[in-house]
Amino acid sequence: MFRYLSQRIVVLLIAFFGITIIAFSLIRLAPGDPITLLLGERSVSEELRKEMTANLGFDKPLITQYFLFIYQGLQGDLGTSVITKRPVVDEFFQRLPATLELGIIALLFAITVGMPFGICAAVKRNSFFDYFTSFTSLAGYSMPIFWWGLVLIIIFSVHIHILPVSGRMNLMYDIEPITGFMLIDVWLRGEGMPAFIDVLKHLILPGIVMGTLPLAVITRMTRSSMLEILKEDYIRTAHAKGLTNMRVIGIHALRNALIPVITVIGLAFGSIITGAILTETIFSWPGIGRWLVLSVTQRDYPVIQGGIVIIASMIIMINILVDTTYAIVNPKMRKQT
């Protein structure tokens, strides 16, 4: 198990450095630069422009800039935003809870709906329910997120008026964040039930939109994994022991079928952080997704490269965590050294 994990870690470290190079260079390849955007339409002298560039450190050769970025980055300093002049790390962690809160809700939705549907579809294979599930999850998988989000807003917010269009909570509540998770903060600030329900209402639509893709993937994965397991000899043994159907499926089959599903859930969590970019833009959600989109339009180099690197490291850590869980769930992996 130690060897297995250390191998995984080496591979992921290599991937990490690849990501820093891409994050660093891609935005610099795009036309435009932060200085021009900062200056706007004002005409300034060439000297002043050079001075500003030098102040921000963009006058150094690209290689130097890159190594400086890595060197400082490894010490926990990812630079400061060109626009707000605040450290990138601070800006990131201030916005992260909003994204995490949404992501966790989305993933919970995907798991609690996806796994039961996947299991039932496998058990009732080739039934109407199975075809319905397969069709719906394929539709969910292929649907463009931004379109789906807008459709839901039109139906539930514009026409039936039961859910809010955007934002994290109603403007009448002015809650200073403590943990950053509004579902918790409303209680810590003593706002009570009405505020909690309001926050929850704001989470429903973006949660569904963000959870749709993972939902489709989890459903399909659970179904196919379950189908595979139900053919196994030990399932026949479990039936021969006279166990109830519930127990055979819910315990004997599910425990084995979960192994690949856990991997998918872990990866889905990674994809949720990236999925945040679209969802947060549609729903004006003040998380890291929208922050990144904004900084791209402003060519805020330190924010873009820093943000991407933090997200990448988080996804890498999730991957390691998934691999470890995988080893714990699967006894065959556990005993190998």
């Binding site: 196994e232 030990y234 026949r236 043994t237 479990a238 004997h252 425990r255 084995n256 769930v329 006894p331």
Partner: peptide, 12 residues
């Protein structure tokens, strides 16, 4: 059954 190795559940 025929194959005892696959007739027992590997996860329990």
């Amino acid at each position: 059954f025929q194959d005892p190795m696959t007739s027992l559940n590997p996860s329990f």
